[in-house]
């Protein structure tokens, strides 16, 4: 992470965690500083274990986890921590406001301060006007917001959000992403886990990719994308002359594989920039023919952020 030591809020030092004979997290060393850090990985990659260790709910088998200067399991660390768990369970009979108020009160605030912080947190997650309904009747998105509210009410220095965007509609996602961004801009350390990179693209400053309990890659999205440049790229081209196009393209040295299906040709290239140049030249060269090459649509199938993730996963397996 690109932060100085004084800013480090959450530290993993050689942390290993076993579940019996199964390794949940293996020799992880990470430093989390202010800003949003996206924690990525498939199911079972170790994201939840990492967050449980960070929240002090699990103890590492080896190594140590610290929040600020405190051991993550200590009460002092928990005062600095806000945690939004993945589970979708609450005290269902309570209203949203009661729940957030109760959870805030557990930090030992006076009633007036608890009330004030509760209202501020509900306002922040956009639930102020809907907080007096019983939690049992809330939609999934509203429940996620209440979970967020109980995590931010005491204004923690470190915020751990386990899959906070699950079940929220696109408009809501934008709002929550903005909220995450705002919290980070206030100087907090926000760690957000997800198994979808697109969810984090907008808000995350840094990404940590986990695979099988190990850190597979870390850095900014741009840094991780650069690792794609040397990798094969798949391009899908729709054309009425798909077979002809395929026959011409296959001769190119940068083309590794060609697949024709109906009006679409899928090309796997080992040198994407070179291929695009060659394709342009090819189309221009055939434009004067009686039946010129027509490209109706072209898309790269794996150039998005997900591709980085997929590529790294492939690398890990």
């Amino acid at each position: 992470m690109s932060t100085t030591n004084t800013e480090i809020a959450l530290t993993f030092d050689g942390v290993t965690r076993f579940y019996g004979p199964v390794i949940g997290l293996g020799d992880v060393t990470l430093r989390f500083g202010p800003g949003v850090t996206g924690l990525l990985g498939t199911n079972g990659a170790g994201k939840s274990t990492l967050l449980k260790l960070a929240s002090g709910r699990l103890r590492p088998t080896q190594g140590c986890v610290r929040i600020g200067d405190f051991d993550a399991t200590s009460l002092a660390a928990k005062r600095l921590l806000g945690y939004c768990p993945e589970i979708n369970k609450f005290y269902e009979e309570m209203t949203g406001r009661e729940f957030v108020r109760t959870m805030t009160r557990l930090y030992g605030y006076s009633w007036s301060e608890t009330r004030q912080r509760t209202e501020a947190a509900l306002d922040r997650v956009g639930m102020l006007d809907r907080a007096d309904r019983a939690l049992g009747g809330y939609s999934h998105g509203m429940r996620q917001r209440i979970k967020l509210a109980q995590a931010v009410a005491h204004e923690p220095r470190v915020l751990l959000l386990d899959e906070p965007l699950t079940g929220i509609d696109p408009a809501g996602r934008r709002e929550v992403n903005q909220l995450i961004r705002d919290l980070a801009d206030e100087g907090r350390t926000v760690v957000v886990s997800s198994h979808l990179l697109v969810e984090l693209e907008q808000s995350a400053d840094h990404l940590v990719m986990l695979q099988r309990g190990r850190v597979q890659a870390e850095g900014t999205l741009a840094e991780l994308r650069r690792r794609l440049d040397d990798q094969p790229l798949t391009i899908r081209i729709e054309s009425p002359q798909a077979r002809r196009l395929a026959a011409i393209c296959v001769a190119g040295p940068e083309v590794a594989q060609v697949d024709v299906r109906g009006d679409a040709v899928t090309i796997r290239t080992t040198d994407a920039p070179q291929f695009f140049v060659a394709l342009n030249e090819l189309i221009a060269a055939h434009s004067q023919e009686t039946e010129p090459l027509v490209v109706e649509r072209m898309e790269t199938l794996d150039a998005g952020a997900e591709a980085v993730f997929d590529y790294l996963q492939r690398g890990a397996t």
Partner: peptide, 14 residues
């Protein structure tokens, strides 16, 4: 049983 214990265990309450 309800899996709400997590909300208590993450608070700074002994």
């Amino acid at each position: 049983e309800d899996r709400t214990l997590v909300f208590l265990l993450i608070r700074p309450v002994p």
